[in-house]
Structures are given as C-alpha cells and as structure tokens.
Design a protein around this nucleic acid. Structure first.
Length: 356
DNA sequence: CACTCGTGGTT
DNA sequence: TAACCAAGAGT
C-alpha cells in the first residue's frame, strides 16, 4: 500500500516547512529529547486534549522528575496524581513501565519504536511518537489527527471504525514520510501532523485556506472534506443508575469519609471510591443501623464512553461510637487527605461540596 | 477483532 | 442537546 504521484513527493517537505514556521513550539513537552518527558506527555495525551494535559503534566513532572522517582513511588501516589485525568489503566501501566525501564533497561528507555512498543501502555502510535521525537526515527504516528488529515488528503474511503482500515491507512502514512529525514525533520514532520490536525484540518469546518498542503488534498479538490474520515459505527451508550453511599464521621474533631478500593477491572478500577450500590435499598444496607439518618442528595449525571451514569448520593453521618460500615476493604480517610487519594472525578467533586 | 476504559470540550 | 471525539492501548 503506497502513495504515488505529486502527493508522495510534496507532502512531507511542505508539512515540515509549515510546522517550523506556523506550528506549535511552546508546549511544555516540546523542546526536549528526554524520553521520560516525551513518554509521559504521550501517555497523558492519549485520547486526551492538550488543554486538559496542561493542568496535569507540570505537577506530575514536579512530583516525579525522572523515571527513577516514578518507579520508586507507590501505585497509590501515582493514582492520586492522575486522579481526574481518566483512563486510569494508563496510570497503572505508566507505573509498571517505569519499573520495567529501571529493572530491565538500566533506567534508560529503549531507543527504537519496535522495542518501545513492548513496554506496558506503549502501543504502536505512542512508540512511534517517542522514537521520532527523541531519536528522529523514520516512523509514522497513527493517532486521530493523522487519520483525519490523511484520510482527507487521500480521500481514503476505508471505514476507520474497523481496525483493518486503520492499519491500511497507517501503511499509507508510512509511505508519506520524508524520504531521507534528519532527526530535526522527523520532529517537525511528526509535530506537523498533529498541529495540522489540531488547528487546521479540524473535524468540522477545516481551515483549508491556511493549509500548507491544500493543493495536494484530494478531498479539498473534490470539495468533500466533510465526508472524511469515513466512520460508520456509532458508540452505543447505555444508561445506568448508581447509588453512592457517603459515610461521614467526626472523631477528635477530624471529619472523615469511608472509602473503598474499586475492583481491579471495570469502571474506575483500582481507584478509591465511596461504596457503590445498585439501588437505594442496597446502599442503606451498607449504611447499617444508621440508615434512618440518610439524606438523599440531588442526582448528578456523569457520562463515560459507553455508559451514561446517573449518580445518586446518599449521605449518612455516623454518630460517635457507631459500628463500622458493613463493607470490607474500606477505611476512614480524613477530608484533609483526600488530595492524596486517587478518586474518580465526580466523586472528588461530590465530596468537595457536601452539605454541612 | 470488537469491546472496554474517563473526562471535558465542541457543535 | 445529544452526539462526537481528543497526541490509543489492552484484552
């Protein structure tokens, strides 16, 4: 699967030149070839917008300045720093990857994309990004930006909701790489693909008048940019109601919340959370003999990729000397220490604005 | 391969 | 506003 004609010859040079003049250069993870910093940014940026990562990356880097610091940390420390960023398997794999790099690679990240892709949490696209940015390897990233830019450039008709078409397009991406790039060329080219997708070749209303390769673009020529990328399948989102039992107690002037650890698989796996029940009655069973004091707070909606959650908080203040909650593997966490615990975003939000 | 996994922004 | 999706990977 290759691209021929003027597109293959002109695309990469035009993109590289454009990126150097008009692309982004001031992001916190740019201007370095430190694999740790590049790797961390790429993991955080998976399915996550730049504006969101900007609020996490500097703090995370400050707390874990290098791969050794991250490897030495506990998983709970890592999860607390990741809390709110979502897709928490990324954080667990990040931690595992740091420990693997230290224990099996002498503390240095592998230099090639193929070896990088064997590490936890690093797939083909992330491996390519790290290798291109840090070592100038001639390999293409394969993210959403690339799929959109190239599917328009080539008027690629494959259905990108299918894995086979994605692989096919990735092969085309490989054939569009600069022919004999320097390391700096690969940095500019890789960044250029993302910058073009993020700021010019956008999902809706692409700014073709600002596009450096508009003259090569088949979708532009045929005025069909809105048909690409082709995706047929839709996300099926089912609705569920969850009851969140907020158990609260005061001991020695210390206000605490009862938190459990979520199961190792599924939604919010491994995070801390208030007890979750499938209905109101189950929540009150967990609350035990204090259910009478339960206060039902207004429900809040929380959308995940495949589910639409309706969360029903039930607040119970335990009296001094009351029996422990009827749950296992839970513990009391003082309100002041919630910032040190990995919590789902809606749960953290809920606990921060409880009524007195 | 199809499915699962968070959260926030955009239209 | 419900739908779509963003620097994807693991199972």
């Amino acid at each position: 699967m290759k691209v021929s004609g003027p597109v293959s010859a002109g695309f990469a040079p035009a993109l590289v030149q454009w990126q150097r003049r008009d692309g982004r250069h001031g992001l916190p993870w740019q201007g370095t070839r430190d694999p740790y910093r590049v790797w961390l940014s790429e993991i955080m940026l998976q399915q996550t917008q730049v504006s969101t990562v900007l609020g996490y990356y500097p703090r995370f880097l400050d707390r874990f300045p290098d791969v050794h610091a991250l490897a030495a940390a506990s998983e709970d420390e890592v999860m607390s720093m990741w809390s709110g960023l979502g897709y928490y398997s990324r954080a667990r794999n990040l931690h595992r990857c740091a420990r693997t790099v230290v224990s099996e690679h002498g503390g240095s990240f592998p230099a090639t994309s193929s070896v990088l892709a064997t590490l936890p949490g690093i797939g083909d696209s992330t491996a390519a990004a790290i290798a291109a940015f840090c070592h100038g390897e001639r390999v293409s990233i394969a993210d959403g930006n690339v799929r959109r830019v190239l599917s328009r450039l080539l008027a690629f008709e494959g259905d990108l909701s299918q894995a086979r078409a994605q692989r096919e397009l990735w092969q085309l991406a490989q054939s569009l790489l600069p022919e004999h790039p320097s390391a700096d060329d690969m940095v500019a080219y890789t960044q250029g693909l993302m910058d073009l997708g993020a700021g010019v070749c956008t999902l809706r209303q692409p700014a073709c008048e600002r596009c450096p390769v508009a003259g090569l673009c088949e979708a532009r020529r045929s005025n069909t940019t809105d048909r690409f990328p082709v995706k047929t399948k839709r996300v099926a989102r089912r609705h569920e109601s969850w009851w969140l039992l907020v158990l609260r107690k005061t001991e020695a002037g210390q206000l605490s919340i009862w938190l459990e650890r979520r199961p190792p698989r599924g939604i919010w796996a491994g995070l801390h959370c208030v007890p979750v029940a499938g209905d109101d009655a189950q929540a009150l069973v967990v609350a035990g003999d204090h259910a009478g004091a339960a206060r039902h707070l207004p429900a809040l909606a929380h959308a995940l990729t495949h589910r639409e959650l309706r969360l029903h908080p039930v607040l119970v203040d335990l009296v001094p000397g009351a029996a422990e909650p009827a749950t296992t593997n839970g513990r009391w966490v003082p309100m002041e220490q919630l910032s040190d615990v990995g919590l789902p975003a809606p749960v953290r939000s809920l606990l921060q604005q409880l009524p007195g």
